[in-house]
Design a protein around this nucleic acid. Sequence first.
DNA 1: AATTAAAATGCAATCGATTGCAAATATAAA
DNA 2: TTTATATTTGCAATCGATTGCATTTTAATT
Lengths: 360, 360
Amino acid sequence: MQSIANINIFISFTEILTQMKKQGETTIHDIARKLNIAASTVSRALNNNPIISEPTRKLIEKTAKEMGYRPNTLAASFRTKRTNMIGVVLPLINRHFFSSVISGIEEVAYSSGFAVTISQTNDNFEKEEKIIQTLFSNRVDGLIVSIGMQTQTFNHLKLFSDKKIPLVFFDRVVEEIDADKIVVDDYRGGFIATEHLIEHGATKIAHIGGPLNVKIYKDRLSGYKDAMNKAGLPIDENMLIHNSLTREDGTNAIKKLLLNEEKPDAIFCANDTTALSVIIYLREHGIKVPDNISIVGFSNEPFSELVTPSISTIRQPGFEMGKKAAELLINHIKQKEQHTSSQTIVMPTELIVRESSGRD
Amino acid sequence: MQSIANINIFISFTEILTQMKKQGETTIHDIARKLNIAASTVSRALNNNPIISEPTRKLIEKTAKEMGYRPNTLAASFRTKRTNMIGVVLPLINRHFFSSVISGIEEVAYSSGFAVTISQTNDNFEKEEKIIQTLFSNRVDGLIVSIGMQTQTFNHLKLFSDKKIPLVFFDRVVEEIDADKIVVDDYRGGFIATEHLIEHGATKIAHIGGPLNVKIYKDRLSGYKDAMNKAGLPIDENMLIHNSLTREDGTNAIKKLLLNEEKPDAIFCANDTTALSVIIYLREHGIKVPDNISIVGFSNEPFSELVTPSISTIRQPGFEMGKKAAELLINHIKQKEQHTSSQTIVMPTELIVRESSGRD
DNA sequence: AATTAAAATGCAATCGATTGCAAATATAAA
DNA sequence: TTTATATTTGCAATCGATTGCATTTTAATT
């Protein structure tokens, strides 16, 4: 009788052990033990390594499913030093352009077996630094970045380029760092926007632009200037305003422009948000758009076609940029070795004419 | 001479070794070796464990910085089973409501030392499943979720609730799963929206709603019905349409409603997107809003106040919901043990009256 | 100087999956 | 049947940080 009691005790112990296991996770070792094979075989089978015979693989897969096995990516990533994860860092996800880029990135990444983790910096430098440090510590396989407006030093990004971790910039790129870049033809965008205003008879064209340490805003300004020069129009410094392009900045900018001795008869805004502020302000003050002042924005935010008057703007192919960025990045990740020289891809911009510049 | 040559060879070997090390990463073992101490001491020092004396900590920190040490979060997470990462899964990041929620989550998470990884499902069930599997495999410490419109089975989410991994739902919640939930008072939102239309003299009020398997849309519909009943107005089944609430769905819905024998004199739309479609369609067909038909939307998307006529709508406190969700989640993560009973937090909704329902 | 307590540091196992190489088994050829 | 070859599977080390427990060092007390 005593031995039976012992057996019972033994059984309940194993039950407890099983129970405890259930608390934690099933590992390949649990599967291996159950099937009386080696963990390495289980690992290979679950990774579809052709070196494992069909019957064993089938058996292992079946058992894994039965036991509710979930791979511990953390362990695998730690061992292989590959996370199959790409990080996306950008200023603000709630901008149509940026979320289009994200969709493009996701499309390519998911179909290549990569997960995507998205972070927004809110154009805050400290947050950008912290996020990028975290992504590095989490050992993402690569990074797709559009920097913030305040960002003027790049050590956090050099961390990646120095260590040869694939890095791709888009839109707001860092010229000082050698990496692939996907940009839009901002110069041409600024040029055709301004030229369009000129063609409609404007001669005193103001520009509300972004901070000049950011290349895209510098380029848009250059486009504006060249179009002015080409038409033989003078560039009045009082007509140039640079700020952070928020709703509020836009309102302040138009207020200031209207205080000028010479009022503008057209404004080229470096984004749609400021164009919107300007339009609303002018509407509230009885100044007709486009009759008195015509406006062109930049980016083609969805609201641009909804507001009255609808905003003429420059379209940027966000989705395509995202796809391209992800393709380049994944390419680099896969052929780790040879660091092919970096390329910069320039996507076309396109003018969309709407009411704010006088559709005709 | 020969010995000197040997020394030279030796030196160049160590140089090569150093070089090779530089390729890889500095680890706590490298630091320990350099300082002739144990790796455990380094680990403790860098984690500010008070058991390490001040001088040693200082020395270690200094050396770590000099050697360019970057913690390998992967290794630490693997060992401790804590990633300090919370996953956020939602249908679409490019919706003002959702991105407000994200900002709220981030605010709380970052200040508590958690990283946030954001994923969008595009209301696609397979993608939602895959994302959540991936987040589980990556062992996030907790999950904040708003499910997709197509989601009707919940095994992917049970994965978390079964394993007692903290889980918080917001907005589009799953009733069947026992977890904390943050919702808006959708019922009341539907009620006050409809009542508002009634007060403005409407009697034939249509409703364009979402799929009824999603609780928020069911609640908005209930609010609508109760307001109608309270006013003694009949509910005409022909006035009720349910779809996925896209731009296109909205256009189709208004077309269909206008084919009814009895045309509606007001429409309560379950989101602003369909309200927008309706307004644009009516504008294009010469039907005056709000004179002929008045409209109320839901969510207070930014475009709602920009379009002409501006859209009356229901405000949802996205940012606060996000903060609350993160607080609850992090609370759970920290006091892992006692599973306090789940709570559902209901946030207030608020009517914003604009032109589309006749401001007065 | 001897004893004891407290403070600081070190040892070594551990987490779960992967992988080079060795061993065992099955299959084919002699 | 034996040998050679191909096919499967197993062994054991490894990745980097953490942590319970043991050991050493320092300080305090008698």
